[in-house]
Amino acid sequence: MSVHIVPRKIYFSVFAALLVLTGTTVFAATIPFGRMNDVVAMTIAVTKMMLVLLFFMHVRYSSRLIWVIVASMFFWLLILLLLTLTDYSSRSWFGPTVIT
């Protein structure tokens, strides 16, 4: 197995980026975005996750097989989220039953 050697500079810049993004999360929390609150917070969080995944966990330098496996993990997460959302999104469709 060949091991890709990542220059230290990359690790430090990823780390710096993570710190900056954490700061951004805290700062963004003080600004009312209304409905976009969740979207903003999640965008920053997903960006941070991708940085960790691609660089710290070496997925960027890994084989196609690893890519497939990572993708399938995301697919599984999608199942969890989507099927849970079928509940939350449709709860209000069915109003309270009134017995007359």
Binding site: L83, T86, D87, S90, R91
Partner: peptide, 22 residues
């Protein structure tokens, strides 16, 4: 097996539409 868990929530105020799918 990963797509059926909602059958444990039929009476837990889960939406009936989700219940039908599960």
């Amino acid at each position: 097996g990963f797509l059926v868990w909602g059958h444990h929530l039929f009476v837990s105020s889960q939406s009936v539409y989700a219940g039908m799918i599960f």
